[in-house]
């Protein structure tokens, strides 16, 4: 059985994508993410090795683990796009001076799609200014 250290798990999809038997399930709704671990026969340790935060271990327990996360809402479009612990991990890795854009906003609170929109809007403002 897989045991999950809930204090470590950041809610990323690595183990879900890695399990060769599909025993880990990841379900996203608009606002939350649920990761569930079904009973496993401990045939391999792929998920254990792949976890970025060493949250998984093999254990003799009976409980099938299930974790749920709130998906942080993008400050632009409001859609849930990442778990808070994942964002926190990225925040802690990146140098502080890289975390704010030219207008002093933290782009980490914005989903990738809106980041693209912001980038292009910024560029287009310049293009349009040059046109007139």
């Amino acid at each position: 059985m897989i045991s999950v250290d809930e204090s470590r798990c950041i809610g990323c999809p690595a183990c879900y994508k890695a399990c060769p038997q599909g025993l880990i399930n990841l379900q996203d709704s608009e606002v939350s993410r649920i990761i569930s671990f079904a009973r496993c026969r401990e045939d391999c340790d792929i998920c254990i090795k792949i976890c970025p935060v060493e949250a998984l271990a093999l254990a003799e327990i009976l409980q099938e683990a299930q974790l749920s996360f709130v998906l942080t809402a993008c400050s632009y479009c409001g859609k849930g796009f990442a778990t808070a612990p994942m964002l926190e991990r990225v925040r802690s890795i990146l140098p502080v001076d890289l975390q704010k854009n030219a207008s002093g906003q933290s782009w980490l609170d914005i989903c990738p799609s809106c980041r693209r929109e912001q980038e292009s809007e910024k560029a287009v403002r310049q293009i349009l200014a040059r046109r007139s």
């Binding site: 690595a14 890695a18 990146l94 990738p112």
Partner: peptide, 17 residues
Amino acid sequence: CTGCDLCLLACPFGVIW
């Protein structure tokens, strides 16, 4: 690649999928 999606969140321009 482990498919963890951390790089997607790290890219300031949203150009990793």
